[in-house]
Write a protein that binds this DNA or RNA. Structure first.
Lengths: 208, 208
DNA sequence: CGGCATCCGTGACGATACTG
DNA sequence: CAGTATCGTCACGGATGCCG
């Protein structure tokens, strides 16, 4: 087996790219940041990735300590992949990339895939406060854990537990809020976001 | 000519990776963050990159508005590549990557290349204050512009103009400071950094 | 000599088919 | 469901050549 391709530079950024610079790797991390995922789910949410490349990346990530494979207990017996603590620390990298990429993200082309939780990262930066916020878009739901001690986190689908606030909006509004162009209270007043819930977060989101 | 390979996802992070996710691209950005560079300099500081890939990446970056090619006026007539404002905004991405990668950056292997200015990014995060700081390592010199309005910046080699402080240290010390494990004043007291200059930055670096 | 373009061998990638 | 096997294609790395 030939040694895997590396940059061979004594530089922390190059070293990081040795681990996560391969095609698809950072997008797999983005998926797993939303919670544990089965192989088939990953394959479904990453259109274009071939099965062998996905399997190979997951193996690499497991070997490098970015992710682990775990078998769910019955009755939901299935293998899920999950980020390690080390892997979850890549969240700032994806946030920086996403922040930079928002400038180029124009109108959606018909060939572009969309998943609701892809909007969670920009929203995490834009929203202040503390608590569990559930967000509903046309594409689906996701939930944010604001003010968590280990930075912040989010998950796909509805929140499994109690929810402090629930936001419903369309994609364009979500993008504008994530970009920082639009504040949530302003959007609420403009009728572009509906906020429900009576937690402290809900109040602070409704008021400037 | 087939359309270039893209992820086709309506996601700002994926969109960013469409532009800078190719092999070598982010390392070229890292090089250009240290100032304008000629093709040959880039090729020399990126061991392993083939000539055609380097030329291809530079063309892509020019087309995508990340970099520009400019001809220096005589007598130093030469083409240099330079980041655009948009390209310079990738600095947070490289900082996030570098911060994450520092955890894996162990001892230097003999096959690893090193350049002095590769240590500029971690130091930029670690150092507080405002002014021009010149740093001397065994591998060479670089200089930092702390507190610049457009974030921060740095350059390879000695500073072209006036210098507020000058630091000399070895690589291990530089890494520890960049990691945040060691404060500059502590390192000065331990004799691991020599600080010269009498600017405000020099004073603040000497004192806790 | 700087700045590429061309050629070639190898490995990575993408699509599909197939298996436990 | 969760991958492995196969195969064609393309990108990469190395060497060499060209041209101002």
């Amino acid at each position: 087996m030939p040694p895997r391709r590396r940059y061979d530079q004594y530089c922390s950024a190059a070293c990081a790219l040795d681990l996560v610079g391969d095609r698809w790797t950072l997008l797999i991390v983005r998926e797993l940041l939303a919670g544990p995922r089965r192989y088939t789910d990953l394959h479904a949410d990453l259109p274009g990735v071939s099965t062998d490349v996905l399997a190979s990346r997951l193996k690499d990530m497991e070997r490098d300590g970015l992710a682990t494979r775990r078998r769910l207990p019955p009755p939901a017996a299935a293998n899920v992949y999950e980020l390690t603590v080390h892997g979850r620390r890549l969240l700032p990298v994806l946030q920086a990339l996403g922040e930079w990429g928002q400038a180029e993200l124009g109108e959606r082309r018909p060939t572009d895939a969309v998943r609701a939780h892809w909007f969670a990262l920009p929203l995490l930066r834009a929203l202040q406060g503390e608590g569990v916020v559930e967000v509903a878009l046309e594409e689906g739901d996701f939930h944010l854990y604001l003010g968590a001690e280990d930075g912040a986190a989010y998950g796909d689908g509805p929140a499994p537990g109690a929810v402090d606030a629930r936001l419903a909006m369309d994609t364009a509004t979500c993008l504008a809020v994530g970009r920082g162009e639009l504040g949530v209270p302003d959007a609420v007043r403009a009728g572009r976001i509906s906020v429900t819930g009576d937690g402290a977060v809900a109040k602070s989101l409704r008021e400037a």
